[in-house]
């Protein structure tokens, strides 16, 4: 099956701005799904609100576009009801970590088998460029005209300490790497987090002298290093990419089925 077969072409053209990284994430995601050989009917995509959330409209899976910040809570209900389905949850940085921060922590704590893909563009794009929990100290947004005094989460550390059993980071520059990471994340049994640094030239780049989309991609190339590389040792100021956590922990739906067997006296 070609990647094109996973798209709902009647929904195009998409609504993302020229130069937006989210289309690249969609591309990598579909290549990962294709590589895994998943049937379209085995995949549920649940999204919240924001530019990132619109990804669910473009794919020919079972798709649910929900309310801001709550995608993981809806996805938890779906996964608990139908554990055999692969449930993908694309979110933005504001969606996942500000309004949805609590659900994110608890989904990770439960280690429920959902694949959370956080498209981190460091800004609220759809509403016009307000600062997010990942904008960063000193960076600008329409609601941070003098530079943000808020510090960012480190999403990798946050996910790890909350209990996610698969944690990775990549960027829209490293497309092949990204597709491979998403493939691993979907295949992983447990709560998987993939942070994708995804450029927003319109609302982050413009206000932060980050340049065009191409220049922002170039920055991803220069400012990030593979986790296990020598550069990661010699340049600790650079952002590390790769799979940070991949471990076995009891998965929530499986633990629940075990509990049902115990409650019904089957085990």
């Amino acid at each position: 099956m070609s990647v094109r077969d996973y798209l709902r072409e009647r929904f195009f053209p998409h609504m993302w701005c020229p130069g937006c990284g989210h289309g690249t994430v969609l591309n990598a995601l579909l290549r990962a799904v294709e590589k895994l050989g998943l049937d379209k009917s085995e995949i549920v995509m649940v999204s919240g609100i924001g530019c990132s959330a619109r990804i669910s409209g473009y794919v020919d899976f079972h798709t649910m576009h929900t309310i801001h910040g709550r995608a993981l809570a809806f996805a938890t209900g779906i996964k608990m009801s139908r554990p055999e389905l692969s449930v993908l949850v694309p979110m933005g940085d504001g969606d996942a970590l500000a309004i949805g921060g609590n659900h994110f922590l608890h989904a990770a704590r439960r280690n429920i088998d959902l694949t959370a893909i956080i498209m981190n563009n460091r800004i609220y794009g759809m509403t016009g460029g307000q600062f997010s929990p990942l904008t960063g100290y000193g960076c600008f947004g329409t609601t941070a005209p003098y530079g943000s005094v808020d510090h960012s989460f480190d999403l990798v550390e946050l996910s790890t300490s909350a209990g996610a059993s698969f944690v990775a980071r990549s960027t829209t520059y490293h497309v092949i790497e990204l597709a491979g990471i998403i493939e691993k994340a979907i295949a992983h049994r447990g709560f998987s987090v993939v942070e994708v640094m995804s450029q927003c030239p319109t609302n982050f780049g413009r206000r932060n002298q980050a340049g065009s989309a191409v220049e922002m991609l170039e920055t991803y190339r220069k400012q990030t290093v593979p986790l296990d590389s020598e550069a990661a040792q010699t340049s600790p100021e650079k952002i590390r990419r790769g799979v940070f956590v991949e471990k076995k922990r009891p998965e929530y739906t499986e633990a629940y089925e075990e509990m049902i067997r115990s409650a019904t006296g089957e085990s």
């Binding site: 649910m64 809570a73 209900g77 608990m80 009801s81 659900h103 509990m259």
Partner: peptide, 25 residues
């Protein structure tokens, strides 16, 4: 659980109603 159904204690009431809507679908 005795009936093969599912009970979830969620992190708040927002998550609770969202989870049941997802399961209902």
């Amino acid at each position: 659980p005795q009936n093969g159904g599912k009970f979830l204690q969620m992190e708040d009431e927002i998550a609770s109603i969202c989870a049941i809507i997802g399961a209902s679908l």
